[in-house]
Design a protein around this nucleic acid. Sequence first.
DNA 1: GCTGATCCTGCAAAGGTTTGCAGTGAAGTA
DNA 2: TACTTCACTGCAAACCTTTGCAGGATCAGC
Lengths: 387, 387
Amino acid sequence: MTAATSDEGAAVPVTIRDVARASGVHISTVSRTFSAPHLVNPETRVRVLACAEDLGYRPNRAARALITGRTHNIGLIIADIANPFFPPLIKAAESQARHRDYHVFVADTNEDPAAEEELVHALAKQVDGVLLCSPRMSNSLIEQLSREVPLVVVNRQVTGLPCVLMDVGQGARAAIEHLIGLGHTRIALLGGPRSSWTNREMRRTATTAARAGGAELTLIGPNAPTETGGSAVAEQVRRSGVSAVLAYNDLMAIGLIEGLDALGVRVPQEVSVVGVDDIALSRLTRPKLTTVATPTAAAGRTAVDMLLQQDTESPRGARGLGAGTAIGVRRTTAQVMLQTDLVIRDSTGPGPQARPARPLAAPQGPDPHCPAGPGAPTAATGDAVAS
Amino acid sequence: MTAATSDEGAAVPVTIRDVARASGVHISTVSRTFSAPHLVNPETRVRVLACAEDLGYRPNRAARALITGRTHNIGLIIADIANPFFPPLIKAAESQARHRDYHVFVADTNEDPAAEEELVHALAKQVDGVLLCSPRMSNSLIEQLSREVPLVVVNRQVTGLPCVLMDVGQGARAAIEHLIGLGHTRIALLGGPRSSWTNREMRRTATTAARAGGAELTLIGPNAPTETGGSAVAEQVRRSGVSAVLAYNDLMAIGLIEGLDALGVRVPQEVSVVGVDDIALSRLTRPKLTTVATPTAAAGRTAVDMLLQQDTESPRGARGLGAGTAIGVRRTTAQVMLQTDLVIRDSTGPGPQARPARPLAAPQGPDPHCPAGPGAPTAATGDAVAS
DNA sequence: GCTGATCCTGCAAAGGTTTGCAGTGAAGTA
DNA sequence: TACTTCACTGCAAACCTTTGCAGGATCAGC
């Protein structure tokens, strides 16, 4: 009201001091109006708020961070933003963070472990915590970095640290069982990056599932987790004589299908292919991809929740109390495992054992009906299961 | 050297003061060692640097920002991160920014103009500038917001503001000419969001190109720029009797192909479809999509460059000089137009005029050979053309 | 009328850094 | 020797906010 209406002025930033002057109170009262409203007289409060609104005042979060030790920012470190697995995760994490009044830095490491480390250091002072998504660096380094800034790890199990995992083990088992059920007895597993936790997990579970089902499992890899990584091994897959393949992720699966197609090998008539992730793309290829759906959005939300919970429990660098309880106690190290779902579409079909039972004349019909047709299980709900 | 080796300590942040104590100089000397090295004695410098390294000191950017007025952060406001058009742009922008020692906030607006405005306000104090990607708010609001924080706009033309545009007009013209060349005389344009600059631009150019080529152009839309938006109008496309469609983007094109397929209409045998963007996905669908490639990565890089250039020219909120030249002069309002390229793949084929010339018996052969086969023009290089 | 409690507000220090100014000592010049 | 110049360094204020502490006013209870 009393303030000069600076509705159009230049970019001169308005501070708490301007609001104080305009409303005739001390700056500390203005500060309290925003950060501890119950401590200020209702009348004063409305007057201050009116002036602030009038002047377009916004608290300076950097200055606030300087004294409170809490930036209200988080960091999101991603192996490769262009990998379609990540955007839904980023979107969900950012949305969840903003709901809780946090802003998020996003950084891309290009799958480079050194860049990961450097980024954690660079962001440490500017954020209240960092989400490490599918990190490529060593567990011990991650542990070490977690002493510098609170960390939550996605797609990697690090003891003592909060982690969000997707149960790709279960997914791989379901995929192998699905293939065995279709009559496949020789199956290949297309591995991903060596340093990937998901990769190890898939290999472990797929191996036991294959053994249990009496199938032979061939390991191919490690490979780059990209379309090219998949197409590059098409020839090797053909030579290996398998009739079904479980790929590390959808991109590789799609690349493999492309590569097989170029070699004249047809999917699913001659080789069945299963991917992992259920990226948007996998519904749109021909044939539509059978894949293990991972709840990426849920993972993003959950990870942010865990980070923020841990954060509110132990304010970093705060002057007052709390510092006593700190020093590495770090109680909330819950690890969350999110469920995956096998989504059966059109890239898997009957194996050699099953084929003789069908009329041999129609091996190329556009009719690869699986036991459970497309649409049976759908997108994962992402129920959390504490471990 | 002299410092107590606190290699393992807790998360106690090390400040400029610790380094000063350890190296026996005043804090201002430490400060200068990092921000104005030429002002400090080489011997002192190496000693200070050694101590800093030893203690793991990292300057606190927030504190620095408080006094310099430059945060070394930028904001990236995106309509929808999950839209595959954006990740390559985000990746390129982030990479370019980090090369220049900037960190980037990423925020998703869900195509909501109100969210866009709120985000600009929220980020304003924390960044040196904001990239507005495919904004949905009004030009006048954008202009107004640009008084609060430096803005660069991508995919939208705002007079007086630096913009990065992709020449979709040229792309649309090329697409229409391609279709006309194939013998199509009735073509539909599948519009995107009403508030999209790209959308208006395409309609304008496609209309004149169609008229020039003697073809009839049907406008369908506006539609949601998604796969669903495309599949939803499949029936309408069929009823309209056109033999070719230019869609607002690849997602819609792919959705349309899906929808047409469900209706039993085959692409490209009965209807040709062209998309825009050349998202990674468009190489992987069947049929592979003919599309107008937009240089999204180049756009991200260029936009960051323009923002940072503008930023170095007029440091905001600086105490010293420079404030005199400020107040809305804003000289660097260059607008950059990036070239697009038509990439011909398999979703376009001969039109009704051309078909009678071919043997009628083989309308369903898997052989839609276009004049220029797949692979002729390839990904856009993104040469900048100042306008 | 005095004590104590309650509510609100102001004061001032603190957080980590930058930077104009002034001071030191050494080297160069007359 | 005296004076200037120069390179370097220290001092202290400033950026914007939060927050412990203390002061002032009001009011209830005795």
